[in-house]
Nucleic acid binder design. Structure first.
Lengths: 237, 237
DNA sequence: GGGATGGTGTCCTATTATCGAACAGGCGGA
DNA sequence: TCCGCCTGTTCGATAATAGGACACCATCCC
């Protein structure tokens, strides 16, 4: 099993266990052990042993039919992710969401260079925009949340394969302090986003998304900037 | 390594990987690899290999000092936990939290028989009640959220070691339809909770907690019951 | 400077945890 | 009734893992 240079060997067993969770997270419905083993391409008894361990830690449960679903133990782990950042941001996200009537989210930069939604807040009484639920990833070169992170990054950290058009756009966006997008990640979806850089935290951005924007982008951006300041204040404490 | 009957063998490697995550989730600050290996009681090179795998899946990251922190990949997994339930409940929890000015949470029954907070919503402008953040566990025989779950359970599913006093309390609570507590789980904290039973989901409850309750328990319980109905309606769709 | 200390990252082989075939049921439908 | 499809368990061979040892790089202190 020689590695083709670059990636070093990891742990096979742990990798399989995590992939089980990922399969479950992306599955539309609860899966049987046999289906899981099939998706993982391992023998059923292997999947069985892995699941028993995951069950011990409450990371998976079984429904009444004996099928496997993700368990509440993941909530405990998740609440430890960037804890201070989440705590500082959540009330602000909610406030913005309800005030503007749009889904408001916090995206962070991953090690891989992609952006991912960390938490999101939907306004009351609105159809949830499922495309941007926590964990959703997309390249930082596309979409409001990603480009806002790009705004906050020094030029030396920009991905090398950026188009000239995008370089120009980001440079211009820097002046006004916000990024926006339309149809870039999800068709017929618009977004406005501002960068959020906090010490000891990954680069992040706050964004709102909607099918149409009530008000000018600049107005919305102003509200987001205020929100970013609130988060920074709450975080600094 | 013979098992003393009862617990069947699981996967050692996967177990260690998960315990790494649990250690990180409960740690006050980011840990070095050496500290983690120490806490896990394994050789550093073992922890190193496990971490590399966790890193590949974005479950952990490193801060600027090279120390390990939980990563955003957990947000993706978490959003798959009882997805429909979370989506139906979150807007309602937020609404209640802001309306009553109290932290509002959704607790679920685990396989182990304990109750755990799945999601919680804090009102704007309030000190977060950190004791009940997602993942927090406590016995269902104590605290409002736990006892409300007990209300929704048939008597045959009650834990065998329940005191007579508690059996009586639950039986009485059934009539009025809500449970309450004071100082049972967290000192000087009060709570009111109602059961929430949805098909295809674990037994759950909706609760508010506060240091003092503005209004009578019955009034608050009425609001919670309305909320539970809203969730059921949103879930049924 | 020099040396002790405390950390990360990488090899390498004995050992042991894991793999997966095979078996033993249980349940439901034809 | 049999048949298909599932879960759960056992067990020997084997491959994945464990962890000692080493190289390396900071920082701190004498």
């Amino acid at each position: 099993m020689a590695q083709p240079s670059g990636t070093q060997a990891g742990s096979q067993t742990l990798d399989r266990g995590i992939r089980l969770l990922e399969i479950l997270a992306s599955a539309a419905h609860n899966l049987s052990i046999a289906e899981l083993a099939d998706a993982l391409e391992v023998h059923r008894s292997v999947a069985y042993r892995l699941l028993r361990t995951l069950e011990d830690h409450d990371l998976v449960t079984r429904d009444h039919a004996g099928h496997i679903a993700l368990g509440a133990g993941l909530a405990a782990l998740n609440s430890g992710v960037a804890r201070n950042l989440q705590q500082a941001a959540l009330p602000v996200l909610n406030e913005i969401a309800n005030e503007l009537g749009m889904t408001c989210l916090l995206a962070v930069l991953l090690d891989s260079g992609e952006a991912a939604t960390l938490v999101s807040a939907a306004p009351r009484q609105t159809v949830a925009v499922v495309s941007y639920r926590p964990g959703y990833r997309h390249p930082i070169t596309r979409g409001g949340p990603g480009k806002a992170i790009l705004l906050g990054l020094p030029e030396s950290s920009w991905p090398p394969d950026m188009s000239d058009a995008l370089r120009e756009e980001i440079t211009e966006s820097r002046v006004r302090g916000y990024a926006s997008s339309q149809d870039e990640v999800v068709p017929s979806l618009r977004s406005v986003a501002v960068p959020l850089t906090l010490p000891g935290q990954p680069r992040a951005s706050i964004a709102v998304i909607h099918v149409f924007l009530p008000g000018t982008e600049a107005e919305i951006a102003e509200r987001l900037k205020l929100g970013a300041q609130s988060v920074a204040r709450a975080y600094g404490a």
